[in-house]
Computed example of a mutant assay.
Amino acid sequence: MRTQKSNITTHMEFVLLGFSDSPHLQWILFGIFFFMYLTILLCNSIIILITKIDPVLQTPMYFFLSNFSFLEVCYVTVTMPRMLLDLCTQKGSISLFDCAAQMCFILILGGMECLLLTVMAYDRYVAVCNPLHYALVMNHKVCTQLVAASWISVIPAAIGQTYQIFSLHFCGSNRINHFICDILPILRLACHETFVNEIAVYVATVVFIMVPFLLIIVSYGKIISSILKLSSAKGRAKSFSTCSSHLIIVVLFYGTVSITYLQATSNSSEETGKLLSLLYMILIPTLNPVIYTLRNKDITLALKKLFIKLLI
């Protein structure tokens, strides 16, 4: 029995069920997701490009936005090509190593997005509440250090979380009711008690999701308080416009991610978890560039100048 369990754990392939409950929609879903993937790649690449070449956008806010767009591209590339392949082949088989690698990258990039959104909120806080010292406080060296610190803090935690989960023994069914190798669906396949692992998931959720979210809420509380004290209606409108795009993305991303990783690990929540994952992994990254471009005059002007250069 011990040898059999060891062999299963070492050589077993998982099967991602994905959207197998809707086989008649496979090619329709493939077309929709493929279009969304191309949109995410194109829009975020354009944002990265214009923030690098336009002199007006050489500020800390757009430095962080460029990093955020790069993260979005990496985030969807870790998940969507595999999902599109599974929709084409309708197989969904994935090796234990590939599954662990995908989970690790998802945790790294997802945790990094949470921390980067917090850094972006801090940047807006300094810009609105301490504008006279903004250039000194948020210089290029500090901005680079904040991004680097976010990477350094999230990578060991994600690797440790992945190692802990894939150190478990898996037996019985190898079918994952999801389109990615996510934590909760994998834990449901473990042979042994997973209470300790679930506690570790909740702790990581609090550290990398809830604490940053609370810091963002505090930052925006002070930002809104400072904006309301401005005597100029035009100044208030400009400040709200600058911060609103980031706040919309924070609410959308943190809302869906928090619900996903704080939900109970019961079978009744599997479909809900899959739907929420679709929202924060595909739909929200598709909307993010639209939210930033439509509500940001600097980016809109930079896009117009880029298109004019391309046409001339």
Results as ranks from 00 to 15, higher is better:
L25A: 15
L42M: 11
F63Y: 07
Y62R: 03
L25W: 05
L42H: 12
D54S: 13
I53S: 11
L57N: 00
G31S: 14
Y62S: 05
T59D: 11
M36V: 11
S22F: 15
F63K: 04
V56G: 10
L38T: 03
F64R: 02
I32C: 09
N67T: 13
L49T: 14
Y62M: 06
P60E: 05
L57E: 04
I32Y: 09
M61R: 14
Q26V: 06
F64G: 02
M61C: 09
F35D: 04
S66Y: 10
N44R: 01
L29K: 09
M36D: 07
I28C: 11
S45L: 07
I48W: 05
S66D: 09
I53C: 09
T51H: 08
V56D: 13
W27N: 15
M61I: 07
L25I: 11
D54Q: 05
P60W: 04
K52F: 08
I48S: 09
P23R: 02
I47A: 03
F35N: 09
L38S: 06
T39N: 06
C43H: 02
T39C: 05
S22P: 06
L42N: 12
P55T: 00
Y62C: 05
L38M: 06
Q26W: 10
M61F: 05
P60D: 05
I47T: 08
S66T: 12
I32G: 08
W27H: 10
N44Q: 04
P60C: 09
I40L: 01
L29W: 02
L42Y: 14
N67L: 13
P60Q: 04
I28K: 07
G31T: 10
V56N: 13
W27D: 13
L38C: 11
Q26E: 10
F34D: 00
T59H: 10
P23K: 00
F35Q: 08
I50N: 02
I28T: 12
C43Y: 06
T39R: 02
F33R: 03
H24M: 09
P23M: 04
F63H: 01
L49D: 13
I32D: 13
V56L: 12
L49F: 13
N44D: 04
I46M: 13
W27L: 15
L42K: 11
Y37H: 13
K52G: 00
G31Y: 05
K52I: 01
S45C: 11
F35A: 14
F64S: 06
K52W: 08
C43M: 08
D54M: 05
T39H: 09
I50L: 14
I47E: 01
F33D: 02
F34V: 00
F64L: 11
G31I: 07
Y37N: 04
Q58S: 14
I53N: 04
L41S: 01
H24D: 13
P55Q: 06
